[in-house]
Design a protein around this nucleic acid. Structure first.
Lengths: 187, 187
DNA sequence: AGGCCCATGTAATCTGTTACATGATTCC
DNA sequence: GGAATCATGTAACAGATTACATGGGCCT
């Protein structure tokens, strides 16, 4: 039941369409939750039925019509209830972890290749987060923004995303280097 | 289809029973994949049916009998195929991220409480990882172990787990501090 | 002419979670 | 005496992924 709350949280700042939501919940961009378009459209329908969001039709001539959603009072109350209970323990689902766990029993070059791909992906996502953070800060210094910025929730989640991806990148580069060195030593 | 490979990877070093697997895939301990007992028992049945693992019955008098599983040649081949393809992008599922995203619109004290809980949990898990790493290293220095240790896959995944939890802890402590300070400033 | 973007879904399947069940032994 | 550990599952439900569907406008 977290997708509901993730959608509500995403709609706090702006009215968004289902399509716009699919963009920010996309794997390559998502900074606080990931979901597929089908999930989001279905969840919006449910949220509206339950009165936690309201949608309004926006007629467009050059583009297909769209529905913009915003959070209702009941929606805000649902978020309030959500933060009142302890968060479930987080966990990472990552194929790469499984591959690395098996690293000594499978083709080393393959694992190095996976490390290298992931390092690049992580750095790309990190750069994206850095840009998002710059944009949210505007001209301000980070300390200043954290103290007095009007909206820091998204900034904090973005900081965590950045640290996570930088951690990923460093781990991948180090892992690849270690495996390569061991291979050289063994030959 | 990653649970299969996670189970195979877990069985690379030792023969394990389903019950032992449930211990290492438990939320509080899992360092490279998480799964519930029911999933594991079901997966073991499927893996055995597909010939990727073999089980042997061990009769115990003081404890219920158990079945110990090990990876077959076909199982190893399945892992080899697995690492040959690009890993799916990783993502984190974390309720706390959703809560923090909404931080400016909900009760601040609740979010601070969630941060504090998580910081403690993260530090506990980090300490657990540190102990696992020490145990794997034996007496050796880390650099030495990484160069010449016989089995470094689990060490590398554990390093990632440690860095992740330390990152979590730091982020939570910082986030809690920021929210507290902002509250003080506003009053 | 072909492909991507906008915009919204349905249907089938796969994966994960919650609830329940059993029963002896060991620890406090 | 009660809780935790060992040891293995079944059944029902919730959540996520894959595949498919539609159709005009814009860009190259």
């Amino acid at each position: 039941m977290t997708l509901r709350h993730a959608v509500l949280a995403a709609l706090l700042d702006d009215e968004l369409s289902g399509y716009q939501l699919t963009k920010s919940f996309d794997v390559g961009v998502a900074n606080f939750w990931h979901a597929l378009p089908q999930q989001l459209y279905a969840e919006l329908t449910r949220l509206e039925k339950d009165g936690l969001v309201t949608g309004r039709e926006v007629v467009q001539d050059t583009r297909p019509n769209k529905r913009l959603f915003r959070v209702t009072e009941a929606g805000l109350a649902a978020l309030e209830e959500f933060v009142a209970d302890a968060a479930k323990p987080s966990f990472v689902r990552d194929d790469l972890m499984v591959m690395v766990q098996a690293a000594d029993h499978v083709d080393v070059d393959a694992v190095v290749a996976r490390f290298t791909e992931r390092a690049a992906f992580a750095e790309a996502k990190a750069e994206l987060f850095r840009a998002m953070l710059r944009k949210m800060r505007g001209g301000r210094e980070e300390g200043e923004f954290l103290r007095h910025g009007e909206r820091i929730g998204p900034y904090l989640t973005c900081l965590r995303g950045l640290a996570f991806e930088e951690g990923n990148r460093d781990w991948c580069l180090r892992g690849a280097e270690i495996l390569r060195e061991r291979k050289r030593a063994r030959v």
